[in-house]
Amino acid sequence: MSNSIFKQNYFEIFSQPVSTELDIDLLKEKNRELQQQVHPDRFANSSDAEKRQAMQITSLVNEAFETLKNSLTRLQYMLTLKGVDMNGETDTAMDGVFLMEQMELREEIANVDSQKNSLDVLDEMALELKARSVNLVSDFESAFNDDALDKGRDIVRKLQFINKAQIEINDKIEQIEDEFI
């Protein structure tokens, strides 16, 4: 089974170069095109074996798409391509200054009052985090290209923290908005 889709990496599935800078609109376009070929609905009149295979291939395409669409999972995936698996790692020593900052930020989010004008404060925090993550992603690109994998891993860990803070901000925003809907 040469050239099997199951042996391709996620970037190859969508014919994209391995890079943090992925054109998301293009990825979506490629995904739609690929789904047209492999989606189980294309095999509604086929045998059970073929239906099953279509489901497995489409599941893989969906998994690849979701992984690449999100910048954090995309970076993690890039590391696994170089043999660095960050799942279940135990050695997670981190930059102390960064950790302190994050703890303060989380506390700040938790302490935001449930008032309508707090939304502006939260929006600003979200923007700031977004800017930081953009910088970190570009740092990652050069570290990755230089094979500085330890550095790459540190950056991904930082991004994980930022991601969690972003989720907390969103939850808080949602909570406040629901109250004032």
Binding site: M1, L26, Q53
Partner: peptide
């Protein structure tokens, strides 16, 4: 069957240039 499916997928993705998208 798998081989044919792959061939078909390859065929549909091949020949497209990035610029087209």
């Amino acid at each position: 069957v798998a081989r044919r499916m792959n061939a078909s997928v390859q065929k549909s993705m091949a020949g497209h240039q990035v610029e087209e998208f």
